[in-house]
Nucleic acid binder design. Structure first.
Lengths: 195, 195
DNA sequence: TTTTATTGATTGATCAGTCAATCAAAAATA
DNA sequence: TATTTTTGATTGACTGATCAATCAATAAAA
């Protein structure tokens, strides 16, 4: 059985398994056994590669935020104009896989975890900053800097809010509607500035 | 020591203690011992009155949502016009005690818990519906019903989003700024409808 | 032989929940 | 009023379950 070079394979499998289990469970109070089982290995192996449960969870946040970041970068490259880049940022936030109930449940759990884990908090802060800075940078080409900051703050809040509200699954709003609502926010406020 | 009629006193003390411990801890993974200690009683007594940890936590959500509701009702009564009622709803959401880091941490934990506890989820759904319906009712007097629904959705999302973003404590935005941002959202969108 | 991958078995800690016992106020009774 | 009974309040000690983490052992590749 034992083949050399399994480490990266196992690490990826465990990180993916963690995300899935956390999403299903809707909480970070998952056991190493559950995660390991989902990844098809023994709990001991998970400890072998990650040292502790906390490290595995931190790595899970890190990897998934990295993937999200890659999506944003790709989407930004594909959008030619600032206004289209703004829409692209919004669209990525509401991508199908991001909007899946288990994904939202997992992110929610990470937000809660950030209250205790400084490292988790750091990752989420970086994500929040990046979202904001992407919005501000493109807004600045369309309106004064001061307004750009304010509108970005509102848009970021709306994205996070729409996202969180999905987690309750009451009056669930579609991906399209969420995108439209946020996009409309930008359009209306930019128009208001022109008088 | 033992006096009769302690039950309501103890229940309140335990519910308040739970909220405080959860807020400090930033998570629902708190022990009955911690809560009981904070309330100044033995863990056994907490079990005596609430039966289980889950019941105590559910009661904690219920009580605090009830208090929030009372604040809203009072604020709505005091506001004379629909437009002022809208601002009142927004203002209550960002009240000083609501905006305290521990309070936000606690609500975040409850949102996460709602993924698993059907009863917790029910309470939060009711809160979300009530917020939405308060907004819609007053917006309808100022614009067509269809627009009212849309604007309410956006405002509710923005409120939740601004709230959640405070939990990361990065680029923290003041109470006043949060209120202003949300209020501005309403004003701008209502104006846009008038052409 | 040395190194890497892997696991079963075990340990130690933590915790929710239980229970029997205690204490004092209130109610009933003499 | 004095005495007994009942009841609510309260806790310390205990139990059983869960789980993260460890470790020694095994198996295969290098």
């Amino acid at each position: 059985m034992p083949k050399v070079g399994m480490e990266p394979v196992r690490r990826k499998a465990l990180v993916d398994a963690a995300m899935r289990v956390i999403g299903d469970h809707g909480s970070l109070t998952v056991t190493m056994s559950e995660i390991a089982k989902q990844a098809g290995v023994s709990p001991a192996l998970a400890h072998h590669y990650f040292g502790s449960k906390e490290q595995l969870l931190i790595e899970t946040v890190r990897v998934h935020l990295q993937r999200l970041r890659d999506s944003v970068v790709t989407a930004l490259r594909a959008a030619p104009t600032p206004r289209e880049k703004l829409s692209a940022v919004i669209r990525v936030s509401f991508q199908a896989d991001q909007f899946a109930p288990e994904t939202i449940a997992a992110w929610l759990a990470f937000y809660a975890e950030a209250q205790r884990s400084e490292e988790t908090r750091r990752f989420l802060v970086i994500y929040a900053r990046r979202l904001r800075s992407n919005l501000v940078a493109n807004l600045k080409t369309l309106c004064p800097a001061e307004d750009a900051e304010r509108i970005a703050e509102g848009a970021a809040a709306m994205i996070d809010g729409l996202y969180i509200r999905q987690s309750l699954r009451s009056a669930p709003i579609s991906i399209e509607a969420s995108i439209a609502l946020t996009d409309d926010y930008l359009t209306t406020h930019l128009n208001a500035l022109r008088g």
